[in-house]
Design a protein around this nucleic acid. Structure first.
Lengths: 218, 218
DNA sequence: GTCTATACACTGATAGAC
DNA sequence: GTCTATCAGTGTATAGAC
C-alpha cells in the first residue's frame, strides 16, 4: 500500500528538482529586478519569465521582498569572490590588474546582478545595509591598509586608498550598469570580444599609470 | 462690478505662483524618484512632499510619466551645462580638470538628479533614448575627436578616448549614485568639505597621471 | 506538491463640488 | 483655479481545490 507521507519523503531527485526551480526563479527575478527596479518589478513578470504560475512563486519565496533579498545576497557573494583576487598577488601591479579583470568580467557576464546591486545601494541599501556596515567595511579597511603598505614600500604613488577603490568600483561597474548607454554610443551594438578586451586594457592602462605603476610587463 | 474671466486673466504674480509651484513639485518628484525609482515612487508621496493634494499634481502634470519625463530632461540640461566646461580650456590638463571639478560638484549638489539619471539609463532609457542617440552621441564623438587631437599633438598619452570619457563619467557620478555606500564606509557620516576636496583632488590626480599629464601646476 | 480563483490594499487618474 | 470623493485597474498574497 502506498503511504504518502504527510511531509514529503525526500525522494531522490526531488530536492534537486526544487533547487533547480529555485535557481530558475532567482535568475528570472534578477533580470526583472534589474530591468524594472524593485518597485517596477511584478511577481507576474517574474513568474512568466520563470515559466510557472504566479501563485507558485509564493510557495518558493513567501514574499516579493524575500525573493529580492535572496537575489541581492547572491550578488554580494559574487562580488566577494571577485574581491578575493585582490589578495592573490603579492604586488600592486598584479593585484590591481587582476581585480580590474575580475570585475570587468563580472560586468560583462552579470550585468543584471550589477544593476540590482546598484539600485539597492542607490535607494539607501534597505535590505543590505548590514553587509555594507560589516563585511564591506572590513574588506575595504583591510585593502586600504594593504595599499598604504605598498605606498610606504615605494611600489606605487601616494594616493588616497579609499578613493582609488571607489574609482575601481565605479569604473568597472559602469560597464554593466550603463551598458545601455555604452551600446547606444557604440552604434546600438553590444561591445564585441575585441572591444571588451580594449575596455579592460584601457581601464588598466589609465589606472595603473595613474598610481605610478609601470604595467608594460603585465 | 467684478467680472471673473472664464479663462483667468493672467494677473501679475499669478504665472509666477504657478511656476514656483511647478518647481516645488519637480524638486519633490526628483527626490522621490531617486529614492524609490520610477516604479516605487507614488504620486501620493510626491504630493505630500510638495505639500499639496494628490489630485492637484495631475493638474500641473497630466500623468506620472509626464512628470518623470520633465525631471529627467531637467537633469540632462544640468549635465549639458557641465559638459560645456570641457571646451572652455584649450589644453587637456585644464579641460579635464575643470570637467572633473564640475561633475564632482554636480554629484555633491544634485545627488538625487544623478540617481534618477542612472536609474533611467540602467532601465534602458525608456524616455531619454532620443537624447542618448543624438545629443549625447554628438557630444561624445566631438570630444573624442578633441582628445585624439591632443594625443596627436603629444599633449597626453595615447588612450582610447571613449573609455577615458566613460571613466570620467563613472568615477564622478559614483560619488552621487553610491553616496550611501560611501557614507557608510565613512563611518555613517557624509563627506565633509575637506573630504570632498580630497575626493576631487584624488580623482584628478589618478586620471591626469593616468593619461600622462603633469598636473603639478594646476 | 501544484495550480485556480479570489481577497484585499493601493495605485494612477478623473469627475464634479466649491 | 483648487480640493473632495471616487473609479477602474493592478499588485501582492492567500485559501482551497486538485
Amino acid at each position: 500500500m502506498n503511504l504518502p507521507a504527510k511531509h514529503p519523503s525526500p525522494r531522490p531527485g526531488q530536492k534537486e528538482r526544487r533547487l533547480a526551480r529555485e535557481k530558475r526563479i532567482l535568475e528570472a527575478a534578477e533580470k526583472v529586478f534589474a530591468e524594472a527596479g524593485f518597485g517596477g518589478a511584478t511577481m507576474q513578470l517574474i513568474a512568466d519569465m520563470a515559466g510557472l504560475p504566479k501563485a507558485n512563486l509564493h510557495y518558493y519565496f513567501p514574499t516579493k521582498e524575500a525573493l529580492y533579498r535572496q537575489v541581492v545576497e547572491n550578488i554580494f557573494q559574487i562580488w566577494l569572490r571577485a574581491a578575493d583576487v585582490f589578495d592573490s598577488a603579492d604586488g600592486p601591479a598584479e593585484a590591481i590588474a587582476a581585480y580590474i579583470d575580475a570585475k570587468m568580467e563580472i560586468s560583462r557576464r552579470h550585468p543584471a546582478g550589477s544593476k540590482v546591486w546598484a539600485s539597492e545601494v542607490m535607494h539607501g541599501a534597505p535590505v543590505i545595509q548590514d553587509y555594507l556596515e560589516h563585511t564591506l567595511t572590513e574588506w575595504t579597511e583591510g585593502r586600504a591598509k594593504v595599499i598604504e603598505r605598498w605606498i610606504a614600500e615605494g611600489r606605487m604613488d601616494r594616493v588616497n586608498p579609499h578613493h582609488l577603490l571607489y574609482m575601481l568600483w565605479a569604473t568597472t561597474q559602469h560597464y554593466a550598469d550603463f551598458n545601455h548607454q555604452i551600446e547606444t554610443l557604440n552604434g546600438g551594438k553590444p561591445l564585441s570580444d575585441a572591444q571588451w578586451e580594449e575596455a579592460k586594457a584601457s581601464v588598466k592602462q589609465i589606472i595603473l599609470a595613474g598610481i605610478g605603476i609601470d604595467a608594460s610587463n603585465l
